Simulated scan of single mutants.
Amino acid sequence: MDAAQSRTAEADPAAAPAFRTAVTADTAAVVELIESAYRGDASRAGWTTEADLLDGQRTDPEGVAAVLAAERGRLLLAERDGALVACCQLEHRGDHAYFGMFAVRPERQGGGLGKAVMAEAERFAREEWGANEMHMTVIRQRDDLIAWYERRGYARTGRMTPFPYGDERFGIPRRADLEFELLIKPLT
């Protein structure tokens, strides 16, 4: 990228980021990004957070390492000017792909970056894996986030799975009724 393109990318927050697959050396930066987007006061700088639902961690180095080691998976990173600004997990599950561990730096939320990451994830799943659908699970109490996904073509299924209460690797719940809902989007 030349200097003029670099200035354009900085001036236009919706400009496409550079995408690449994460490697082991990215683990600490990915954990920091995910934690900043989901938990604690830092997450409140963005438009969406789990801080009102959960305390504790969202992930840890071991969780990220497991995603990196998954034979049928990929951890997609989005960077601007060499800085990590967003990420997502993709896992090939036969005729569909699973989308998870989605995080956008809180101060960068609301500017189109999340849409760009989702579009790249969907493109990759469709073109590289031949996936017909993208699946994801979202805490059903996150109405604003689910509405955002619905505007991007994801449909609620009503199929719920329980939150892993008692396993602090996924956070410390602030309420007793948390559960995940499966959302699906056709990719063809």
Rank of each mutant, 00 (worst) to 15 (best):
T24C: 01
R126L: 03
G130S: 05
Q109S: 12
A116Q: 15
D144A: 15
G94A: 02
V23T: 13
F170V: 06
D12T: 13
Y165H: 04
E32K: 15
P13H: 06
A121M: 11
L68S: 05
A97I: 03
F19G: 10
R58G: 05
G56C: 03
C88I: 03
F124Q: 07
W129L: 09
A4N: 07
G114H: 01
S36H: 12
A83D: 10
M101W: 01
D52I: 05
A69E: 11
D55N: 09
D143A: 13
R174S: 02
L182N: 04
I172F: 02
E62G: 15
S6F: 07
E107T: 14
R175D: 06
A42T: 12
T21G: 12
E181I: 14
R74W: 00
M136R: 08
D81H: 14
T157H: 05
M160S: 09
V64K: 14
T48R: 06
E91L: 12
G40N: 01
A11Y: 00
R126P: 07
A4D: 03
M1I: 10
A70R: 03
E10W: 04
Q109P: 11
A4Q: 10
R174H: 04
E120N: 07
A15R: 01
G110L: 08
G158V: 11
R123T: 02
A15I: 03
G130A: 08
T188M: 02
A83C: 07
I146D: 04
L68E: 04
I34P: 08
G112N: 13
A176T: 12
R169E: 01
Y165G: 03
P162H: 06
A15V: 02
L76E: 12
R108P: 07
G112A: 13
C88A: 14
T137C: 03
R74V: 13
A29N: 13
R7F: 02
T161S: 09
V30P: 01
Y154C: 04
G130E: 05
R142E: 14
G73M: 06
I184E: 06
G110K: 07
A155Y: 09
T188L: 02
P186S: 11
F19Y: 15
A9C: 08
T27N: 04
E79N: 06
G114V: 00
G73H: 05
D55G: 14
